[in-house]
Simulated assay, not measured.
Amino acid sequence: MEIAPMASGRLILLGLLGLVVAEAAVFLVAAQAFGSFVVLFTLFATSVFGFLVLGRMGKRLVGRLADMLSRRDPAFGEAGAGGVLTVIGGILLVLPGFVTDAVGLLLLVPAVQKKLIDRGPVRRSRPSGRVLDLDRSQWRDIRDTHIPDGNKSDDRRKPRR
């Protein structure tokens, strides 16, 4: 099911408005239960913690990306994805509010990161360790025209443009 651009913009706006209302409601309930000073101090402390996470992981992630680019390694892998989730968690911690803080703290937990990476839409396939054994009648060789076979009279060895 594809959502029209106008409808998706409205959904995003509605989601952000819902987040603001939820943050305000949680803030008011927490302030009434624990006191305004404690709630404000907690929000400030989680923002500082978020900045610390971003400072630490941001440098590490940039270094990892630079290393992969220098080796011309296109595979980002689970470690890179975990770093991105940690940076997103840090950003959510910096934003004021208990709902975003809760989601940000969850994204810092390695078990949650692993679960999200494993369920994510883009993931690297892992070998299962099983062997598929086929009878000769169940498969056939297909000549690959892109790989020269060493036959000098082959016309396909001309350089490609």
Rank of each mutant, 00 (worst) to 15 (best):
M1D: 10
M1Y: 12
E2Q: 13
M6S: 10
A7M: 11
S8Q: 14
S8L: 14
R10E: 09
L13I: 11
G15E: 01
L16P: 00
L16D: 00
L16M: 11
L19P: 03
V20D: 01
E23T: 07
F27T: 13
A31V: 02
Q32F: 13
F34M: 06
S36H: 04
F41K: 14
T42M: 12
L43G: 12
T46W: 06
S47Y: 03
L52S: 09
V53A: 11
V53T: 05
G55M: 03
R56H: 08
R56I: 06
G58V: 06
K59F: 02
L61R: 03
G63E: 12
R64D: 12
R64K: 12
R64V: 02
D73L: 07
E78W: 02
E78M: 11
E78R: 14
A79G: 15
G80Q: 10
G82D: 07
G82E: 11
G83Y: 02
G83N: 03
V84M: 12
T86Q: 09
I88F: 03
G90M: 07
L92W: 08
L92G: 04
L92N: 06
P96N: 01
G97D: 02
F98Y: 05
F98M: 08
F98Q: 02
V99Q: 01
V99R: 00
T100W: 06
T100A: 12
T100Y: 07
G104N: 05
L107N: 01
L108S: 02
L108N: 07
K114T: 02
K114L: 02
K115W: 15
L116G: 02
L116N: 03
G120H: 13
V122N: 08
R123E: 01
S125Y: 09
P127D: 09
P127I: 03
G129V: 04
V131T: 15
L132W: 02
L134F: 12
L134E: 07
L134G: 04
R136L: 10
Q138L: 01
W139H: 14
R140L: 09
I142K: 11
I142H: 13
R143E: 06
R143Q: 03
D144Q: 03
T145F: 10
T145K: 10
T145R: 10
H146N: 14
H146S: 12
P148D: 13
G150W: 04
N151R: 14
S153W: 10
D155G: 06
D155F: 11
D155T: 10
R156P: 00
R156M: 09
R157H: 06
K158I: 12
P159Y: 08
